[in-house]
Simulated assay, not measured.
Amino acid sequence: MSTATAPPPLVEQTVARLRQDLLSNVHRPGDKLKVDHLRDVYGCSSSPLREALNRLTYEGLVVADERRGFRVAPMTVDDFSDITRLRLILDIQALEESIAVGEDEWEARAVAAFYRLQKVEERLPDGPTVLDGEWTQLHKAFHMTLLSATTSPRLLQTCSNLFDQAERYRRFSAAHRTQPRSKSGEHEAILEATIERNRAEATALLAGHITRTQQDIAALMPKLGL
C-alpha cells in the first residue's frame, strides 16, 4: 500500500502560492488582484481563487473592496507599528504560557526548528539581501514553535497571521539594509532563555527582536518617500 501523502486541496495550494508571492512582493502593495488575470497565473478557476483571496483578506495580506475587487494590502509605517504593537502583546503572552506549560517534546521541537533555521542563515550574506521562501518558512516555523505550547489555538493562529503580515516588512527592511544584523544570534539568545524557563529574559529578548524591525522600518520608509 502506498504511503504517499495526498497533495493539499486546490484552495490550500492556491492560498499557499498567493501568500508566498505576496510576501515576496511579486504582487506589490496596492496592486489590483484581478481574478481573470490570476486564473492564468495560477492555473485554476475563479472559485478557488476567490476563496483564497478571501482567506488572505482575513490574514491581512489582501484588502477587499466591493466595488474595486481585491488589492494587495498597503505598506505604511503606521500599519507596521500597529502590527508590532499587537505582536508585543500576543506573542509575549503566548511565549509566557509556553514557558510555563511546555514539556520536553516542545523544547526538542524548538531546538530542532532553530537548528534548521540556523543552517539556512549561515548561507545568507550580511548586508542587503533578499530573504527567500525557504528562510521565510523556517523563520516562521521557529517563532511559532516557541509559542506553540500555548493552550489557546486562537491565540496561536492570531500570532501566525500577524507574523505573515510582518513578513513583507521584514523582507523590505532586509533588502535595503546597509548594516549587518545577526538574526541567528538573536534567535539563539531567545531560544536559550526560553528552554531555561527564564520568562523575564526570554520575553524581553523577543520584544527587542520584534521592535528592532519596527525601528528599521520607521527609519527606512520615510527616506524612500513611503
Rank of each mutant, 00 (worst) to 15 (best):
A6E: 15
P8S: 07
P8M: 06
L10E: 12
E12Y: 09
T14Y: 00
L18E: 03
L18H: 03
R19I: 03
Q20W: 02
D21Q: 13
D21A: 14
L22Q: 02
S24V: 10
S24N: 11
S24Q: 07
N25M: 13
R28Y: 13
R28C: 13
P29I: 04
G30C: 07
K32S: 14
L33S: 00
L33M: 11
L33I: 08
L33A: 01
V35N: 06
V35L: 09
D36Y: 10
D36E: 15
H37L: 15
H37D: 14
V41T: 08
Y42M: 02
S47R: 15
L49V: 05
L49A: 09
R50A: 08
R50E: 14
A52F: 08
L53F: 01
R55T: 10
R55H: 08
Y58P: 01
Y58A: 14
Y58F: 13
E59K: 09
E59V: 11
G60E: 10
L61Y: 00
L61P: 02
V62H: 02
V63I: 15
V63W: 04
A64P: 03
A64R: 12
D65I: 06
D65W: 07
R67Q: 15
R68V: 07
G69T: 11
G69Y: 02
G69K: 00
R71G: 11
V72K: 04
T76D: 06
V77L: 04
V77G: 00
D78L: 13
D79Y: 09
D79M: 13
F80V: 01
F80C: 07
S81M: 10
T84L: 06
R85G: 13
L86T: 05
R87N: 06
L90I: 09
D91M: 01
D91I: 03
I92F: 06
A94E: 03
A94M: 07
L95G: 01
E96G: 08
E97D: 10
E97P: 06
E97Y: 05
S98P: 01
I99L: 07
A100D: 15
G102K: 03
G102F: 02
E103Y: 05
E103P: 05
D104G: 09
E105T: 14
E105S: 13
E105Q: 14
W106K: 02
E107V: 13
A108G: 04
A108M: 10
R109T: 06
R109H: 11
A110M: 07
A113G: 09
F114V: 06
F114H: 09
Y115Q: 14
L117W: 01
K119H: 08
K119P: 01
V120Q: 08
E121V: 10
E122N: 12
L124P: 00
P125S: 08
D126Y: 11
D126Q: 11
D126V: 10
G127I: 02
P128W: 05
P128K: 09
T129P: 00
T129G: 05
L131K: 08
D132L: 03
D132Y: 02
D132H: 02
E134V: 15
E134R: 14
E134Y: 12
L138T: 00
H139T: 10
H139A: 08
K140M: 12
K140L: 11
K140A: 13
K140S: 12
K140Y: 05
A141P: 00
F142H: 01
H143P: 00
H143S: 04
H143A: 08
M144V: 15
S148N: 05
T150C: 01
T150A: 00
T151K: 11
T151V: 12
T151M: 05
S152L: 01
P153C: 05
